[in-house]
Nucleic acid binder design. Sequence first.
DNA 1: CAAAGTTAATAAACGCTGTTTAGTATACAA
DNA 2: TTGTATACTAAACAGCGTTTATTAACTTTG
Lengths: 204, 204
Amino acid sequence: MGISERKEREKQEMKDLIFQAAMDLFIEDGYEKASIRKIADRIEYSPATIYLYFKDKDEIFHAVHEKGFELLFARMETLAVIENPFQRLQKLGEIYLKFAYDHPELYDLMFIMRAPMEALKQENEDWNCGFKAHNGLREIVRACIGQGDMKTMDVDVAALSIWSFAHGLASLAIRNRLKMYPPDQLDTLIPDSIENMLRLFRKE
Amino acid sequence: MGISERKEREKQEMKDLIFQAAMDLFIEDGYEKASIRKIADRIEYSPATIYLYFKDKDEIFHAVHEKGFELLFARMETLAVIENPFQRLQKLGEIYLKFAYDHPELYDLMFIMRAPMEALKQENEDWNCGFKAHNGLREIVRACIGQGDMKTMDVDVAALSIWSFAHGLASLAIRNRLKMYPPDQLDTLIPDSIENMLRLFRKE
DNA sequence: CAAAGTTAATAAACGCTGTTTAGTATACAA
DNA sequence: TTGTATACTAAACAGCGTTTATTAACTTTG
């Protein structure tokens, strides 16, 4: 009996359809504009139908947030070919901040907004994407210190510090808190700050 | 004729009343719960009355955000008596992060939420609180470098880096992105990270 | 003092939001 | 063909920020 398989498939296709509409609307106009009703409108179903496939809005945007991590991880794959751990760290920072610059709404959802974390809480799940990303950073930091490219310090301390710095920079920019610097000054100030920070962590 | 003065005074008192209700609700339950209708309820006026004293919700929460900066600046006054610039920087970091820990909702409004920045945009004003706070940091950094307590680097680069690090730490914690570290590990990891970061900036 | 003008306050509505409920078709199984 | 399970939705609920029209009170003027 292939009927239940087809139904399963159709259910997944519908879920994908909803997700894709949510993703598109979100990327286009941000979280505020991506309402359940507009998602429903776009796929030409009623709002109530959405709730047959997703528990609530948080769950939809948790899915979008996961897709964001997929995009970030895809960009990170280029790291594997870099031999030198410190160069890998440098490139990781570049990728991370470029991602925030290219997809501010996605970055916002992944690292600033509350919605996707609320979805985790309800399902009693771990923040696996976040764990994986942070673990990537930690392993690079470990290699840097092990190789003697980075000053001797606790791996977790270094990883948390570097992430905090990068996230601070990205989130201050995204949430419009860098008004004290004119845009053209920021264009040099931000790369300079990153370079300077790497210099401080580097050994010698 | 003292009538117009009295009216002026009453107008200000009403504005204060609304502001105080907004502040209390916000501190108690956060931004989501502090709706115009609940503010109106609390002071026993109709929601429409609020709009006679504030242009919109953003303007109310811009006022709350300014009050937050007042509280932060009050805490910063203890810095003046510290002679050594690097100790002043250390203390500033401590005050900044303690503030974020003590008043997460206020910190959120001041440095993460979009609402108060939207209010600025509409009035075409500058982010004076932010400018003032950042200038305080910059002057301390300038003194540190001038005195030879901090490694030689551009003042703006150092100030932006330190702020980004501190804000990154605070905002990751407030927006629940540090789940990869159990709370008791964070209790030591965060102070260690701050100490380590200061060590990296310190000369010698 | 009464009439006119000004101001403060609000009830009700508008157009949104996320979510739930009850009911209707349709597709499948017996 | 009949009965049941499934997919879907119209309508409603309860909330939101905000605006409009109206009332009530107070102040000024003739």
